[in-house]
Write a protein that binds this DNA or RNA. Structure first.
Lengths: 234, 234
DNA sequence: CCTCCATAGTGAGGATTGTCACATTTTGCT
DNA sequence: AGCAAAATGTGACAATCCTCACTATGGAGG
């Protein structure tokens, strides 16, 4: 839908080229873990193909999915220019894919030597930050139903494909997966999705794909104030 | 308690000095609005004295408090190096105070001309981002009680003062204020605080000040995994 | 000192969401 | 195609949290 630019689309080709020279290409199979919460943050990962899920878990096993990144996105930037930096989330492949691993130290040197590259990087960090703030509000302030609706709206923008029947969310999601985006139970998600299906707002396609048939309905019920499209993303 | 460094403490004196030359000092009285959600993001504000509350509201009036910033903190960085950038939250003074307004364009030029300053800035942005991610998980995954406990723990680190009787949270908060940090109702906060007081975990002092007498209790009940102190902040 | 007003405190009842249990359907694999 | 595993769908009940209504308390100001 209003898909925003990926990381590689937002930075200059020059910078990208330099990044590639630092990178080593690595192949991962579905389920493989790029890093775990608490691991030293030595590498960043630029996704060439496949999808990467970023999660935070509590000690008692509850999981929160922060993001699912696709090709062209950068994953694993815990921070920059800090000593003894560790990851504060875990990242795993959702499907077989190829990523370029970039050592953080290399990126830092690149940024220090080429001040002009910092511009792109800081712009990108700012966007990510605003996205999270806006997600924050939506997930906390509109109750769980609002949280789900908001998530569906964002998914339209991030993973959506315009189709004659509606907006197809190009992400294979079980009810449980969706629940983890919001902090809901699988059963609650199931009931809410069933209701939406009954009301013809969405359609549930095989393989866990969702088709949004009535996006305005979702936006109206949560009083979506049409925030800028690069912000209203997963 | 484990208070982390403020923005001005994290950046080099050189950078700070240059920032000051760009800034114009402005006095605000309690309640004054620095900017509103949707306003063009032309200025950043470096707090000299007083406290600034950063909020996001929904169209139907519900409010979420993102942060309360004190002296030495930087407020209003919506993003950098973007055109037609607008604020995505509102900022208002909680008490009379002095801030230095820095034009965003000036900061951007400063960063472009002095690449070495970007390092400090990006480090700071990374820390802010990790903080929000961790808050995100705590507020969504542990239920509302866990959200409150987590908020109290973070407040100990950010606004806390060690005292013989416990940790004094140096922030004047009504029940409603506290509720807005979490997405709760005033009544629920009231009941939860009353319970904690009955259990001798906290003490409620006049003027909306809270004294934490049993921090380990709060940490244990939400299975706090002792994340790095610069992250476990408001 | 008294009044007013904002805040705190509390009960009752309803709405929402979670938990558990189980039947049904879909999916992945050989 | 057939089987096992995973995911979905659903009901009953419990727990949580919100809403509304009201009283009590504590400062600020006349």
């Amino acid at each position: 839908m209003t898909r925003s630019l990926t990381f590689v689309q937002q930075i200059s080709p020059d910078f990208l080229e330099k990044l590639y020279t630092l990178a080593t290409e690595r192949h991962f199979s579905a389920g493989a873990v790029l890093y775990m919460d608490g691991d030293p943050a030595e590498c960043l990962y630029l996704i060439s193909s496949g999808q990467v899920k970023l999660t935070k878990t509590t000690v008692d096993g509850k999981e929160l999915t922060l993001q699912v990144f696709g090709a062209g996105e950068l994953v694993g930037l815990a921070g920059l220019f800090e000593v003894e930096l560790v990851h504060t989330a875990s990242a795993a492949m959702l499907e077989n894919g190829v990523v370029r691993a970039i050592p953080r130290s290399g990126l830092e040197q690149l940024l220090m030597k080429n001040g002009e590259f910092c511009v792109d990087f800081m712009r990108w960090m700012g966007i990510m930050n605003r996205r999270m703030q806006s997600k924050f509000r939506d997930l906390l302030l509109n109750g769980k139903v609002g949280a789900l609706y908001s998530t569906l709206i964002r998914m339209c923008n991030t993973y959506g494909e315009e189709r004659p029947e509606g907006i197809y969310i190009n992400l294979s999601l079980t009810n449980r997966d969706l629940a983890h985006f919001i902090g809901l139970t699988r059963e609650s998600v199931n009931r809410m999705l069933s209701d939406l299906k009954k009301q013809q707002v969405i359609d549930l396609l095989p393989q866990g794909h969702i088709l949004i048939k009535n996006l305005p309905y979702l936006k109206e019920t949560i009083c979506c104030d049409d925030c800028p499209p690069e912000i209203c993303q997963m």
